[in-house]
């Protein structure tokens, strides 16, 4: 399988400069290795900072249990699943797994239509301010991965429609920054809130990014 690589830009927080990054339409062994050997120790470092700062457990990352090796293996070879990786400075900065076949739109104006469903989206620990990295390394990882999901949706004929269940700590980002519609809690998915993006919302999100 060939991997498509696009050139994108991330904001390096310390210098305030945009730096070149690579967006891959796959999660390869190198990404799993980065997650295992670089993300895990950084995550532990962040948890150490939270402990030292006496941060309440409620502010700790809610995706500590995510296992990208397992997720990549589950997607392997399935046409309905796709992984994405964002690489900068030779290191994986973000990962995303999407499903194109198992979910349907729920918003009344697009009910039953196909969409790209984001199963998991994660930023590298050193890019996450909630882990008390000061300053964080890169900004824009989540946005670029969301753009990749929208572009995939457009390529598949889904017109930019995207859906996901958000962890409580990410709800505000999907609601405010992404402009997705909050459809409330879903008891079938651990009581997580379900968010959906229409074609119009997708266009608005892309335009917002272009004007930055």
């Amino acid at each position: 399988m060939t991997v498509d690589i696009s050139s994108v830009a991330l904001l390096e927080v310390q210098s305030g400069e945009f730096v070149e990054a690579a967006l891959l339409d796959a999660i390869q062994e190198q990404q799993i290795s980065d997650w295992d050997k670089l993300w895990a120790p950084a995550l532990n470092e962040g948890l150490g900072r939270l402990t030292a700062a006496l941060a309440p457990k409620s502010s700790w990352p809610q995706n500590l249990h995510w296992d990208w090796r397992e997720k990549a293996a589950a997607m392997n070879g399935l046409l309905g699943n796709q992984g994405f990786s964002l690489v900068c400075d030779g290191v994986t900065q973000g990962l995303m797994a999407v499903d194109m076949v198992s979910h349907r739109c729920r918003l009344p104006e697009q009910q039953g239509k196909d969409l790209v469903y984001i199963e998991f989206l994660e930023n590298a620990p050193w890019n996450r301010s909630e882990l008390l990295f000061r300053p964080t390394k890169f900004r824009g990882v989540g946005t670029l991965l969301m753009v990749a999901a929208i572009q995939l949706s457009i390529e598949q004929g889904f017109k930019g429609r995207v859906g996901l269940h958000a962890l409580p700590q990410s709800e505000e980002w999907y609601r405010q920054k992404c402009g997705m519609t909050d459809m409330g809690t879903d008891q079938r998915v651990q009581g997580l809130r379900y968010f959906e993006m229409t074609a119009l919302q997708a266009t608005a999100f892309i335009r917002k990014g272009d004007s930055r």
């Binding site: 399935l78 046409l79 309905g80 194109m100 076949v101 198992s102 039953g112 239509k113 196909d114 598949q156 004929g157 889904f158 017109k159």
Partner: peptide, 23 residues
């Protein structure tokens, strides 16, 4: 018509679903 998709997109979705069910 129902899914607001092209013929190619419908057939791609059918193939993905068929493969998922088989797996």
């Amino acid at each position: 018509e129902k899914k607001d998709l092209s013929k190619t997109s419908v057939l791609r979705q059918a193939l993905r679903l068929y493969q998922l069910v088989e797996a």
